[in-house]
Nucleic acid binder design. Structure first.
Lengths: 337, 337
DNA sequence: CGCCGCCGTCGAACCGGTTCGAGCACCTTA
DNA sequence: TAAGGTGCTCGAACCGGTTCGACGGCGGCG
């Protein structure tokens, strides 16, 4: 059932059917109705590949996300979901691309073979060759996160620096003096992973400002690592009374480690950090945290990308978000002096 | 940079370039080398839309997943990740399709417009019109889950009935006599959602077999609902000493509710259920549960689909998985008589 | 009445690949 | 030396849409 078949049955030419569907040229009412009737009868829908070939647009955007394995966090799920929904609202499909081991190959597929009109990049690094590469090609993309030099780019980011700082100030205001920082895995930190780097910076600077005694740790993205990390923290400095974490997946393990060390949260020990809201709600006591607005970020990224696709010459835009700290139940006053 | 350009620069015809790339007809060594050299110079990659149009295959599979909102669970993330990876291994891309509010429209896009060669359906219902629809069209798909009449279909499923039963037997063996069942939200149960229905069946039958006193509950997919559900359970029958749950997202809330009611897990109260392993590890005490092998299921679904695509006449195949219960720390002996 | 302009429609070319049948050159064998 | 392969390459048609230029018929206006 192709457009020629429709044309034949409606007694018109293929081009007329095309114009009736696209509305790019006037078609008489009678003809349009006849065509529509045939289409409804046969349940015809134009072939996406043919259309893409003819007008050079696939109506698909690529979502480039990190390699699998134990590295998924709940946040990423929220991103994916909101991106797909927002894209659907703009009549775009979403093609998933793992930028895993063989990231070159995926990129070649997406860009070289023209499978997508544009892309959204997750898990940005401060020095990100994917970003440089796409920018050099002038390929339309939006980054979720910002590189070290975000000027002139299209991105949606979180102000990790000030978010981590806000956590420090919150703890300092409560009277905590010895605070630990639980980061993402060391491998991510080393390769310049944005949230890990900026979060660490913000934490360190704010702590210095407030004259706090701090230690910083990297921690695997799973509960067992979180538990081990707490043990290490309390071993290194038993007088520690609070921690700040970016590591959503380790959160449950951090709580377990504290419980097993006999530290009650929030009476003996305060915990806070930067975590997606729905995950902050699942632990007990509920985590006082800067809630990552993953849903909003995904939606905004799609909106920006669509704008960029519709207006290729539009000046770059971005959104830097700084969600407030949601006060829940995991922080309390620090030790008396 | 299309195939014609390559042909021109290599001094051969377009068809020769095509044959050199596909290997479907012999090409002399000299010619092949010359073509390859031009291709490498220009970084040419064949256009995916044109190729799809010509040979009728898009090399893309559709992953039809449930509507967003608060309905995502961690399990689904694991599915998505493993499907994408497995598909990449077979040289397929994955197109995400929300079968949300407007599920008809998504389906039309995927199938009617021929965007994908085949599909993987998540979140199956016992009576599933999507499955019926695709089967009637003879469209290649694999279901993650099984309908009420799985015969003759392609699917990868979990034996929810016996999994829930195994949880009951585990608790009964420990001496528990009054047990609650915490299901997915009522809306999902009512619309025939497979895991909710079969899980409930398995639980009910096994409990009857063992002569247990039971109550069953539906519970929203979030921590607050889980907490409220536990309150309801203990209000309805304060003598309840254990619960079985399918509701991953409510798990944190269930634990919180028990803690606030002063019930210590596992001393005073046992908790078990069917949950993805990595989430069972995040709660304290770690959940004794039948671990959902999401990664394996995603991979197997892709393998089945690829087999079906490669051999259109192959007889239907399926995998029914019954992972064992992993003994962790959330269940203990029931009350003394 | 004749000319002009507009509306609606058509045919052909094109997007960038794949594939089929044909043909040429060269080598083998009778 | 002629006949018959064989190995490689080419041109043309095709996949299913979109789009451009052209054209026929009709109404309005001078």
């Amino acid at each position: 059932m192709n457009i020629g078949e429709i044309a034949r049955r409606a007694g018109v030419s293929r081009s007329t059917v095309s114009y009736a569907l696209s509305g790019k040229r006037p078609v008489s009412d009678a003809t349009r109705r006849k065509i529509q009737q045939v289409i409804d009868e046969l349940g015809y829908r134009p072939n996406a590949s043919a259309r893409a070939l003819a007008n050079g647009r696939t109506s698909t955007i690529g979502l480039v996300f990190p390699p699998a394995g134990p590295h998924y966090t709940g946040m990423q799920l929220d991103f994916i979901g909101s991106v797909v929904e927002a894209a659907a609202a703009h009549d775009y499909d979403v093609l998933l691309s793992p930028s895993g081991v063989d990231s070159d190959r995926s990129f070649q597929r997406l860009l070289g073979e023209r499978r997508v009109d544009g892309a959204i990049l997750m898990e940005i690094r401060l020095q990100d060759d994917r970003v440089d590469h796409l920018a050099a090609l002038d390929f339309p993309f939006v980054a979720i996160g910002r590189t070290a030099r975000p000027e002139g780019g299209w991105w949606v980011g979180l102000d990790h620096t000030s978010l981590a700082a806000a956590c420090v100030h919150h703890l300092a205001d409560l009277g905590h003096r010895r605070v630990a920082f639980v980061n993402r895995p060391e491998q991510l930190l080393r390769c310049g992973y944005e949230s890990a780097r900026r979060g660490l910076d913000g934490f360190t600077k704010a702590a210095a400002e407030r004259g706090l005694t701090v230690r910083t740790y990297c921690c695997g993205d799973d509960a067992a690592s979180g538990q081990a990390c707490v043990e290490q923290i309390l071993h290194d400095d038993p007088a520690t009374t609070a921690l700040v974490t970016l590591n959503e997946a380790a959160l449950g393990g951090l709580y377990r480690g504290l419980a097993q060390a006999g530290r009650h949260v929030p009476r003996d020990f305060s915990v806070t950090g930067v975590v997606a809201g729905r995950w902050a709600e699942t632990v007990t006591p509920r985590l006082t945290a800067a809630d990552v607005p993953a849903e909003e970020m995904g939606r905004r990224a799609v909106d920006l990308l669509v704008e960029r696709l519709d207006h290729p010459e539009a000046p770059p835009r971005h959104h830097l978000l700084t969600p407030p700290i949601s006060l829940r139940a995991s922080t309390g006053p620090g030790p008396r002096n």
